[in-house]
């Protein structure tokens, strides 16, 4: 353990960890600022609705400083290289589902999410996986919306058959 530390101390500071420290500081300020903007609301408890938020804001402040120290000491675990494109595919899939859910209905929106996730794991092509996803989602929609009365949004595809 001590050996690792010595090696890392010679490295430059961990910039990602410093970014996290900055983020924690931002959270601290946002909580404190948002809490300060509304009144304390006097009560018999003396511990009002603003007490906990302030405590947590102070804690974030402290954690931010602590993180800066650890960033310089190199205490964060080593990270292997990761690819960014699979993450973008998953984000894209979730965003597409979110935006299309009301308009296109559950099956089409979720089918796109299915295909995008498969693509993130290197499975394609999309013209094959999108229909697979839509058909699968439609079967799921029939089971849960029609069979078990879950309220899942219906779109053109669902209206076509029901």
């Amino acid at each position: 353990m001590s050996l690792d530390n010595q090696q890392q101390e010679r490295r430059r500071p961990d910039w990602a960890a410093l970014a996290i420290a900055a983020l924690l500081m931002v959270v601290s300020v946002v909580i404190a600022w948002s809490t300060a903007s509304h009144g304390a609301g006097a009560s018999y408890a003396r511990v009002g609705p603003t007490t906990f938020p302030y405590v947590i804001a102070v804690a974030f402040f402290g954690l931010s400083i602590w993180t800066v120290f650890e960033a310089f000491r190199g205490d964060f675990p080593a990270r292997e290289k990761q690819e960014i494109s699979p993450i973008l595919w998953i984000i894209g899939g979730l965003a597409a589902q979110m935006l299309l859910l009301k308009a296109a209905g559950f099956s089409i929106a979720t089918g796109l999410l299915f295909a995008a996730t498969a693509r993130a794991f290197g499975r394609g092509p999309l013209w094959k996986t999108i229909p697979i996803g839509i058909v699968l989602s439609f079967v799921v929609w029939i089971i849960f919306a029609k069979g078990l009365q879950l309220s899942l949004p219906a779109g053109p595809l669902e209206h076509l058959l029901f």
């Binding site: 979720t110 999410l113 299915f114 996730t117 498969a118 794991f121 996803g133």
Partner: peptide, 13 residues
């Protein structure tokens, strides 16, 4: 790929 696509399908469902 299919496992995680399925997990996300059911998670969002």
């Amino acid at each position: 790929p299919w496992l995680y696509a399925g997990i996300l399908l059911f998670a969002t469902l």
